[in-house]
């Protein structure tokens, strides 16, 4: 079996994988990092989104071997150095942007990719960017609100009740 090496959340990792081993399986099964979730098999739900070399990808639709030598960032590496929630995570908590939590890792990783590319997105830009992330709990209201808040925009006017 070929060996792959990649830097995950700043730490060097390596392991023997089969050709068919997906990046999501490498993270979950080989490294025991179960924060990255798998919710579908057609590359649509986005619960598995991680960053590979800084770009959002669906880790269930990329072979681990393709990420050999890459830098990978996952939900486990998003908090601040002292363990406190980062700005996006904190906004999700503040604005109740999650319920069951299953889609949340992918949502946070997609939100991070969006805000890196577009630091002050409009509501429509946020909704468009989340095209590849399904949530069944929130009706998206508080996810969109949380991402707008994380970008530093005032969400006080958004209908809450």
């Amino acid at each position: 079996m070929p060996q792959v090496s990649m830097t995950v959340n700043g730490k060097a990792t390596s392991g023997d994988v089969e050709g068919r081993t997906l990046l999501s399986a490498y993270l979950r099964d080989h490294l025991g990092m179960t924060g990255t979730h798998v919710g579908c098999d057609t590359s649509q739900c986005g619960a598995c989104v991680v960053h590979v070399n800084g770009e959002a990808v669906k880790s269930c639709t990329m072979f681990a071997a393709e990420a050999d030598g890459a830098t990978v960032d996952t939900i486990e590496g998003q908090a601040n150095a002292d363990g406190s929630l980062n700005v996006i995570q904190q906004a999700f908590q503040d604005h109740h942007g999650l319920q069951c939590g299953f889609c949340t890792p992918g949502m946070v990783m997609s939100a991070a990719a969006l805000l890196k590319e577009n630091p002050k997105p409009t509501e429509q830009e946020v909704r468009d960017y989340l095209e590849g992330n399904l949530c069944r709990c929130t009706g998206y209201h508080n996810i969109v609100k949380a991402i707008l808040a994380a970008s530093g925009q005032d969400v006080g006017a958004i209908a809450a009740e």
Partner: peptide
């Protein structure tokens, strides 16, 4: 095409 993550691959 697809979504942002799909477009990256």
């Amino acid at each position: 095409i697809g979504d942002p993550a799909v477009r990256n691959r």
